[in-house]
C-alpha cells in the first residue's frame, strides 16, 4: 500500500463525492422551485389603482387561491435592493430611477394549479405578464438530467479506475506472497483464511482514500457554502449538517467496498489451485 495509490484513490473518491453533492444540490434546487406556489402578476404601466383593486378582488375569489398581495413599485425596489446585497453597481447604474412595475403576488394552495392559474391571469388586459418561473424550472431539470447522466457515467468510470488502482496494488502484494499462498492451499488453509488479510488491505486503502477525500470535500463544501451565502443568498444549498455526514459516510463505504472488490479480483487467480 503506497502513498501514490492511496492518493489516487482519494482523488477518485473526491471527484465521486463532488459529483454526488452537485447532483443532489441541483435536484434540491429544482424541487424547491417546483414547489413554489407563487405567481407574480406584473401590471402594465399607467394602470388605474382602482382597476388593480378590482383584479385583486377577482383573483381572491378564484378557486385554489390562498392569498393575494399588492406590491407597489417602491416595495419592489426595496426587495430588489435586499436581494442584490453587496452588488451595488446595478443600483448605481439605475441612478435613482425605478424601472420595476407594480405587481400582485398570488399564492396558491397547490403547485399543480400554477400553470392554469397563470394562463387565466395572463388574459386580463391590465396584466403585462404572469410569471411563475416555469421556464427556469424546466431549464434546471434539463441541467440536472444531463448532469445526472454525465455524473453517473463519470462515477462509473471513476469507480472503475479506483477498482483498477486498488486491485493492481493488491496484486503486487499477492504476487510477492504467491509461494506462501500456494503452500497455504496445499496444507489445507481455507480460501477465507488466505483472503482476509488482502481483503483488509484493500479495505484499509479504500478507508484511507475515503478519509482524505472527505476532508477535502468538507472543506470544499464549507467554502462553497460561504461563497454562495455571500453572493447568491437565494440559492438553497443543502445544509452541511447532516448532509455532509451522509456524504462522508457514503464516500468511505464506497471506498471500502471498492477496496474489498479490488482485492477479491486480484486474489481470484491465485486461489485457484
Amino acid at each position: 500500500m503506497s502513498l501514490a495509490s492511496v492518493s489516487t484513490v482519494a482523488v477518485s473518491l473526491f471527484i465521486l463525492g463532488m459529483f454526488t453533492m452537485l447532483v443532489l444540490n441541483l435536484n434540491k434546487l429544482a424541487e424547491n422551485l417546483e414547489s413554489q406556489v407563487q405567481i407574480n402578476v406584473y401590471i402594465k404601466e399607467d394602470v388605474n389603482r382602482e382597476d388593480i383593486k378590482d383584479l385583486e378582488g377577482i383573483i381572491k375569489d378564484m378557486q385554489g387561491v390562498e392569498n393575494v398581495t399588492y406590491v407597489d413599485r417602491e416595495t419592489a425596489m426595496e426587495t430588489f435592493k435586499k436581494r442584490l446585497g453587496d452588488q451595488t453597481s446595478i443600483l448605481e447604474a439605475l441612478e435613482d430611477t425605478n424601472p420595476l412595475p407594480e405587481s400582485l403576488v398570488v399564492e396558491l394552495k397547490e403547485p399543480a394549479m400554477v400553470q392554469t392559474a397563470a394562463e387565466t391571469l395572463q388574459k386580463y388586459d391590465i396584466v403585462e405578464e404572469a410569471k411563475y418561473g416555469q421556464d427556469v424550472i424546466e431549464h434546471l431539470f434539463d441541467i440536472t438530467r444531463l448532469l445526472r447522466i454525465f455524473g453517473f457515467g463519470l462515477m462509473l468510470l471513476l469507480a472503475g479506475a479506483t477498482l483498477f488502482i486498488i486491485s493492481n496494488t493488491i496484486r503486487l502484494t499477492v504476487f510477492a506472497r504467491r509461494k506462501e499462498i500456494a503452500i497455504m492451499k496445499y496444507v489445507g488453509a481455507t480460501d477465507w483464511f488466505i483472503r482476509w488479510p488482502f481483503l483488509l488491505e484493500g479495505m484499509v486503502m479504500g478507508l484511507c482514500g475515503g478519509i482524505i477525500a472527505d476532508i477535502f470535500l468538507q472543506l470544499g463544501y464549507a467554502e462553497v457554502e460561504s461563497k454562495i451565502y455571500n453572493t447568491l443568498a437565494f440559492f438553497p444549498l443543502i445544509p452541511a449538517d447532516p448532509f455532509m455526514t451522509y456524504i462522508s459516510i457514503g464516500v468511505i463505504i464506497t471506498g471500502m467496498f471498492i477496496g474489498a472488490m479490488g482485492s477479491t479480483i486480484s486474489l481470484k487467480r491465485f486461489l485457484e489451485v
Binding site: 509461494k179 500456494a182 503452500i183 492451499k185 496445499y186 496444507v187 489445507g188 480460501d191
Partner: peptide, 29 residues
C-alpha cells in the same frame, strides 16, 4: 481444504519459505 488437511505433500523443489526459519516453516502449516 478439509480434503487436503488429510494429505501431506512433498515436492521435488521443497517449496520452503526462504524468510522463515525451519521451525516457522513447519509451524506455518
Amino acid at each position: 481444504p478439509y480434503l487436503r488437511r488429510g494429505l501431506g505433500v512433498i515436492f521435488q523443489d521443497y517449496r520452503l519459505l526462504p524468510d522463515k526459519t525451519v521451525y516457522e516453516n513447519v509451524a506455518f502449516a
